[in-house]
Simulated scan of single mutants.
Amino acid sequence: MKKLVLLSFVIITFFGCGDEIRFNTPAMQANREGETWRATYFAADIDFGGFLVEGGMGLEVLQLVTPTDGTGTFSLGENSSAYAVFRDFDGTVYSTRNNPDPSVSIYPVEGTISVQEIDNNADPKLISGEFNFTAFSEDGLRSVNFIDGVFNRVSLIGGLEVIND
């Protein structure tokens, strides 16, 4: 009887669930304000000589913009040509181009976007990297923080439009 149970377990383990295993690649996700934020759709574009990486979940949209279309780490902040924009479910737009109100923070906006890999052999091309930032609303009174962010094998398909911040 033990042999039959063991044999059944082995058969189910190897053959029963084979089609149900899925890997989370490609992906775009981060830790937003202490909670996992995982995009349900994502794409990338080359605009204005740099990358635009976009991911969204429901009404929320996150965009990462770099000044060049190559690998590298780009600092985010007041005088940077790289920036991040997040539009919340209620339409509030947060940007690393906005400075915090002095009553909220005396520290300037900071963060990075790091494009680590471009797969030119794929069709369409794929890009991967990491990001982290704190962005502020236009009035500087509200903020959103993304840490440990990754975009992995996101397709360069084009047709994206930058969120006005």
Rank of each mutant, 00 (worst) to 15 (best):
L62R: 14
T96E: 05
T96V: 04
V154G: 01
T36D: 05
V53I: 15
S80K: 09
L141C: 00
S95N: 06
Y94L: 05
T68A: 02
D69Q: 14
N120S: 08
I127T: 08
D19I: 09
T13N: 06
D47H: 05
N98S: 01
S75V: 11
M1L: 10
T13R: 00
E138C: 00
R97F: 04
F151Y: 13
R87N: 03
F42V: 00
A43L: 07
A122M: 06
N31F: 06
D123G: 04
L141S: 06
T40I: 07
A84N: 03
A122V: 05
N79V: 00
F15S: 14
E33A: 10
N164A: 08
P124W: 05
N132F: 14
E117F: 09
D90H: 07
V115P: 09
M1A: 13
E110M: 09
I21T: 05
E130M: 14
L6A: 11
G50I: 11
T73R: 14
N99H: 03
G50V: 11
Y107E: 14
L59K: 15
I118M: 10
K3G: 03
E54C: 00
G158I: 10
G58S: 02
R87S: 11
E110H: 05
V150S: 09
F15D: 04
P108E: 12
L52D: 04
N24E: 10
P26H: 06
F131V: 04
N120Q: 03
T96K: 03
L126N: 03
A122D: 10
G129Y: 05
T68F: 06
T40M: 14
Y41N: 14
R38C: 01
F48Y: 09
S155K: 12
R97S: 12
F23V: 14
T13K: 01
N99Q: 15
S128F: 06
D119I: 12
V109A: 13
G70L: 11
E35K: 08
A84F: 06
L126V: 02
K125R: 15
G16V: 04
L156F: 12
N121H: 04
T25F: 00
S75Y: 08
F15V: 13
I113W: 06
L76T: 09
Q29P: 01
P26E: 05
N121V: 02
L7N: 07
P108N: 11
L126S: 02
E161R: 09
V53L: 11
E54S: 13
E33R: 05
Y83P: 11
L64P: 15
W37M: 04
L156S: 12
V154P: 00
Y41D: 13
N152P: 02
F14N: 02
D69L: 03
S81K: 13
G55W: 07
T68N: 03
T73W: 00
V65F: 13
T36V: 11
M1H: 12
L156T: 14
K125W: 10
G58E: 06
E33C: 01
